[in-house]
């Protein structure tokens, strides 16, 4: 496998095959807490993407330098630095969204997806691959959060990115912008995800073995 193929593979795996939210089920706290509107979800996803890419690059760069014994705390210091950057930038540029996301911006530090990628990938791979992996994972996370945010905002507020879709008489599904709605929606999306995966696997199995066994439903 050529080098560019490998980079592309690491980049793409986070979008679908190893999607951080729907397959790895990591970073559940922001995925449930801030996806009550599409804007919040997108901003949280992009902030996480930035922190993830910057930290993965730096960790990968420093991977031979960081002593094994203190690697986790070193990762946390690096991640926290970039989270502070993201926090301050958001505060300066998008004060309204920043206020709505509240404590969840500083809490990106403890997003297990970010620490997980440092330990599992960035610390063992070259800077190029680490950044490719981080971009893929970050985009996959943003995609998942946005999907949740869009569905929950449409049902829970009758709007999309703050624009009313169904006129002033819309009867909002209050539950969808509350925590239970986050759990219900996430569960349903996971359901669809594994259903699609099962169908794909069944199709591949059929192609590999064209004579289906009789009596197997």
């Amino acid at each position: 496998m050529s080098q560019s193929d490998r980079t592309a593979e690491e980049l793409l795996k986070g979008l679908w095959k190893e999607n951080p939210t729907f397959v790895q089920v990591l970073g559940m706290c922001p995925a449930l807490a801030v996806t009550n509107s599409a804007v919040n979800a997108i901003v949280m996803g992009l902030a996480t993407l930035f922190v993830l890419v910057a930290s993965s690059g730096l960790v990968s760069m420093l991977r031979h330098f960081i002593p094994k014994q203190v690697r986790i705390s070193t990762y946390i210091v690096i991640i926290a630095t970039f989270v502070s950057v993201a926090d301050l930038v958001l505060q300066a540029t998008l004060p309204v969204v920043h206020k709505e996301l509240g404590a969840f911006i500083p809490l990106i530090v403890v997003n297990c997806l970010i620490l997980g990628r440092q330990e599992a990938f960035a610390a063992k791979n070259t800077v190029k691959l680490a950044i490719a992996d981080a971009i893929g994972m970050g985009l996959g996370f943003t995609f998942a959060l946005t999907l949740l945010g869009v569905v929950r905002e449409i049902l829970g507020s009758g709007s999309l990115f703050g624009m009313a879709l169904f006129g002033p008489n819309y009867e909002p599904w209050v539950v969808m912008i509350l925590p239970p709605g986050g759990f219900i929606m996430l569960g349903l999306i996971l359901l669809v995800f594994s259903w699609v995966k099962q169908r794909r696997q069944a199709r591949q199995a059929r192609q590999a073995d064209p004579a289906p066994k009789v009596g197997v439903a």
Partner: peptide, 10 residues
């Protein structure tokens, strides 16, 4: 319970 949580007033 779903309806109660979704449409508490109705």
């Amino acid at each position: 319970a779903f309806l109660q949580a979704a449409f508490p007033i109705t």
